[in-house]
Design a protein around this nucleic acid. Structure first.
Lengths: 163, 163
DNA sequence: ACCTACCGGTTGACGTGTCAATGATGCTAA
DNA sequence: TTAGCATCATTGACACGTCAACCGGTAGGT
């Protein structure tokens, strides 16, 4: 499936000019898309996408609370990153942290009323923005293709991670 | 082309569950892809993708030098971002800055020998990584589709920016 | 001449992310 | 028992980005 340039044993080493152009378009546009969604969310609700991910996870959790490392793996963050982020969110009153009763040394992250309220206010505008910037930009076929491309890229990332 | 849900005048407001799942897959995977390329570049050459973009532009410039704001618009950065980044690159000896002879108050950015050398060493592994992570992950059809998706998303970003 | 407005560039404050080091506490094996 | 050792979480140092403020100088308009 790879290395399929005919007449070139071992395959070509580097991307062609066309492939490179598409790569740059693709990576720059998707990252710009992320930034725009981020700043839209910020304007609409004073939350970052990081805040949103944390609040979403807590909102859906039993008792609106989760152990710190459980939360980290749920949203796919390193614990260090989460710890820094929770510190900032705690300063803003969006969450609270307390000792975990069941797990020694564990930290329980709790959604505060202000955090729940901020999340409620952010949800609708955020989903609407996703529709405007992504869903409305593409045809149904393109959306399906985007899903397949993401899956293929993810699979490749996973394969290369294990080597 | 948008708002095309039949029987629902005005169109639906929010993405469907499927669309949302694809959105999350897409945005998370593309951003993970960017991070992986970034850290690969870092390991191979001690350069960030930002460094790479600056060095690439300077390498291709007349006399391996550019005016600061010209460089900024060439790589699509805000002036402030570039100024911060050039400060860091200057500390590492990758570039130099000097007063511009032709434009009063202008700042000329020069590629140093060390910068040129670092760029030379980074190019091949970086392009190879793009091939491994992106080109090799997708079929030719998917690569073409990725180009079209990027173009459509970019067009939408541009439209929404003007409103 | 003077005031204003813009222009090129820098700076500071702050949020964010990674990495490596550090507590603090249990588990296990000599 | 005690010397490691893994685990949960935090911290500090640093790179990176954005935003708003600032500086110095040129250009217009009155």
């Amino acid at each position: 499936m790879t290395d399929a340039t005919p007449g070139r044993p071992g395959g070509r080493q580097l991307p062609s000019a066309d492939e490179l152009r598409i790569w740059r378009d693709f990576i720059e546009t998707t990252s710009a898309l992320g930034s725009r969604l981020e700043s839209r969310l910020q304007n609409d609700s004073s939350l970052s996408t990081g805040d949103y991910a944390v609040l979403l996870a807590l909102s859906e959790a039993q008792g609106q609370a989760m152990r710190s490392s459980e939360l980290a793996s749920h949203i796919g963050w390193e614990r260090s990153r989460l710890s820094h982020h929770l510190g900032r969110m705690e300063r803003r009153g969006l969450i609270r942290r307390q000792e975990c009763a069941t797990v020694p040394r564990g930290s329980e992250v709790l959604l505060t009323a202000a955090g729940a309220e901020a999340f409620r206010g952010a949800t609708f505008p955020h989903l609407r923005a996703i529709r405007e910037f992504f869903v409305d930009a593409l045809t149904p076929d393109q959306i399906a293709a985007a899903g397949e491309i993401a899956a293929a890229l993810r699979a490749r990332l996973d394969v290369l991670a294990k080597e």
